[in-house]
Design a protein around this nucleic acid. Structure first.
Lengths: 149, 149
DNA sequence: AATTAACTATTCGATATCGAACTATTATTT
DNA sequence: AAATAATAGTTCGATATCGAATAGTTAATT
């Protein structure tokens, strides 16, 4: 048997991270359940939605925005490109950059699912009271910002 | 341009899910940063840790516990098996089940990283006050349980 | 007893994901 | 100007992940 034993504080923290991961999982699964209908993965949706709302970005910026690696971006954006949902345009000023643009077709796809997607996200959080939602957002933000480099 | 426009409530919910995913990502990354040292993936650690603390389980139960598919479990457990960290034993009473056991070697590995892992998790949440941690856990639990079928 | 239904695990194809090595381009240093 | 450093994107190998199809086992039904 192990000689190591977690302290009470540690056990509480472990319980807390479990709850957080479970909540995050539940919410994101429930919110993205409709993506299958239009054959989008969660990653693809994330990228497409960012381009839709923020505008053209280079892959590095998209990777930062979605918390993924640049190697991963190449793959995801390749797959979006195959379906004609985005377009790559090499920057002229600095030829290292490739600006990624959402196409008309990509825009239509987002328009098609966004209303229901928003409804679902809203519904997910409707188990919390309004003031609980505010508090939850505040605490998440504290946690999300704390680990930044 | 899109004819669709999100309501204020929807926009707030979208902002909230972003904060939640960011928090979840930040915490889980910071907590699991040391796994590379012992060549474990996050999934492998999750499975191994569950077996360590709960005891032998069949793959279906492990999948439920870790919120993954059974197909995925086959892969992850295969990879843990290759390294001799777990053992599969076909159940005799009901031959559909395969009980997965952690080995001595697997137990040693967990013992080796668990103290530091716990410290890291604890540190992640130390940005919250004690009463905030309690409240955060309560809200996460509400969210995590709400989407269950 | 035979059929059907329910359930566990595996397989497969497609996509995601990381980190590290690599190429191409631009910026900085000497 | 040449060498060096920094940066963007790609490639590769390994692993993860899903959903659907499949095989094998047991339970329930007829």
């Amino acid at each position: 048997m192990a000689g190591y034993k977690a302290t009470k504080e540690e056990r509480e923290a472990l319980a807390l991270i479990t709850k957080l991961l479970r909540a995050s999982n539940a919410v994101s699964q429930s919110a993205t359940a409709l993506l299958g209908r239009v054959n989008l993965t969660v990653s693809q949706f994330g990228v497409l939605e960012a381009l839709y709302h923020i505008g053209p970005m280079c892959q590095r910026d998209i990777a930062d925005k979605t918390l993924k690696s640049t190697g991963n971006m190449t793959t995801v954006i390749d797959n979006l490109g195959k379906r004609g949902l985005i377009e790559r345009r090499r920057s002229i000023e600095d030829r290292r950059y490739i600006m990624v643009h959402i196409t008309e077709s990509g825009r239509n796809l987002i328009d098609q699912i966004f209303p229901e997607h928003n409804q679902r996200v809203l519904k997910c959080f409707s188990v919390l009271e309004p003031d609980e939602r505010v508090e939850f957002g505040r605490l998440c933000k504290k946690l999300g910002m704390s680990q930044e480099s």
